[in-house]
Amino acid sequence: MRRKSFGRAAPWLLLALPLMLLLIFIVLPYAMTFYYSTTAATFGRLTDSPQVGLGNFKTILSSGAPSFPGVLLVTTIFTGGTLVGSLGLGTALALSLHTLSASVRSILLAIYLIPWVIAAVVIGYTWRLMYDPQIGLANTLLDFVGIEPISWLTNRATAIAALVVANIWASYGIVLLIMSGALANVPPNLILSGQVDGASYARIVRRIILPSIRPAFLLAGLVATVSGLNVFDLIYVTTGGGPVYQTETMALEMFRITTRRSNIGEGAAVTVILFSLSLLLAIAYVIIWRREQRKWT
């Protein structure tokens, strides 16, 4: 009897520590962030800061420098670009690797994953050097073909594009990993039957492989989107959100308001908005995932 009840409690005992850690390091900080977003807290006034209700959200949404729609647009372009680029590049690489022998594939996979394991700050500094107007690789290549050097990081259009490229480089690895895992699970007999029927590789990819890995696409898409939405370090070391807030995403805005302006309340409000957007994406993912699951079962 005692053994039986211990058996029932065992999973909870095993889960207790991770749950406690989750509570301390995830749930409580989030709860505190929600709390601070309704206060006028600053670094110098944390403990008895007055309640302002939704005042911080109103301030953020009506701010003119930079405007919230402007920050949202930059965030959307950056996230959308990261999503499309990393999903495209990661999937293309995974499909290409899939055609190679297992030994070559594993070596190349390890090489292709290097950018993903490098710290974003290092990637940021690397790309900043690449875009350096005087010694950077980007302008050196342009010089080879006789094109005038470009101020990559100080012009709005090129700055966002340059940052998207850098973030695609930083994040395609996780897509590649997810897709490679999914491709390994595609039943070989499906591909073989396509080959027997005389289908080209492109047709097999379009008709057999891609439909088979749709759930993985969803997961990779979510990961790529969240990695675009939450990126801070790469942009911070590359452009710092400037010039004139033209590369300021919500993650940068959160940092700027909290640290430069010492305004914890408004910084927390931006965090809550960003969290809500991520949550909405996660909910959408779960809904679509369930629909997909129904199709497959």
């Binding site: 409580l28 900080p29 505190m32 670094f43 700050v121 911070y236 070391v237 940092f255 909290t258």
Partner: peptide, 22 residues
């Protein structure tokens, strides 16, 4: 709660400092 608030924001500051490379 005050103590926790302080600890929480101190953690934020440390993370912020790590981000800014100080």
């Amino acid at each position: 709660i005050k103590g926790f608030q302080l600890a929480f924001v101190a953690t934020l500051v440390l993370v912020g400092n790590a981000c800014t490379g100080t």
